[in-house]
Amino acid sequence: MITLGIVLVLLGEAVLFFEEVPLVDFITGTIWAPMFEPKSFGVLPLVCGTFLITCGAAMIGLPSGLGVGLFLNDFAPNWLRSIIKPVLEILAGIPTVVYGYFALTVVTPLMQRMSPSVEVFNAASAAIVVGVMVLPMVASLCDDAIRAVPRSIKEAGYALGATKCEVALQVTVPSALSGIVASFILAISRAFGETMAVTLAAGSTPKLTLNPFESVQTLTAYIAQVSTGDTPQGSLEYKSIFAVGMLLLVVTLFFNMLAYYLVKRFRTVTE
């Protein structure tokens, strides 16, 4: 019901937008300049910015999240586990705007001190912060998936003279793989749709670049920018955010369906 509403609303406005801007231009254009004359609506720079940050965040958040999951299961004694778990929950509960603040006031100055060429708004610090943001989610989902691996299978591994590392990487992780992959996908989709931290940290310069130390703009940040500015309703820019939102929705829905399917398959395997 709600999905239908979302789709209808977005579609309605997006169609209006595409009446004025051809779909092909939208998808393949390399310049995003809704505010200037001549107006140009090539979504690629926004996609590129989003992609850059999502990849960066995934590179940080996914392996370390899996690492935390493994650590909690294989090495942490009970007392340590009972400390780490709540800490992760706190991390997961911190509002995203706080992460944005963190990126702007702590991460970026730190990076600037290391290399002066880093811009005030840059993709890298946004990626780092989003990575830290998805870490607790990945960690707790991986933890669940790893815990669901039957103890007996791990014991079989140990009984064959395997070390802890060998059992963890060659027995546990493959058995929990679909759960782990599902957590990865959810995290990517979350990083993809993240707004506030990215708006604050990455800036608002739509650019087709792969240099993480430059300022970029993401799909979500563009929506936020337009909606906070004084854009008259019905104008082309106003309609453009619905086209962008549509794109956002389609991609995240795709990711989520994938994760949902994997988790379902994972359940049937373990039960």
């Binding site: 079989a156 591994g157 003279g161 060659q170 058995s175 395997v269």
Partner: peptide, 26 residues
């Protein structure tokens, strides 16, 4: 030690992989 003293458990617990891999892994 466990490499030299094998163990078979109460419930059959093959690894969720192929029969061949079950045997060659150890």
């Amino acid at each position: 030690l466990r490499r030299q003293i094998g163990m078979v458990f109460q419930k059959p617990n093959p690894f969720p992989t192929s029969i061949r891999k079950n045997i060659t892994w150890g």
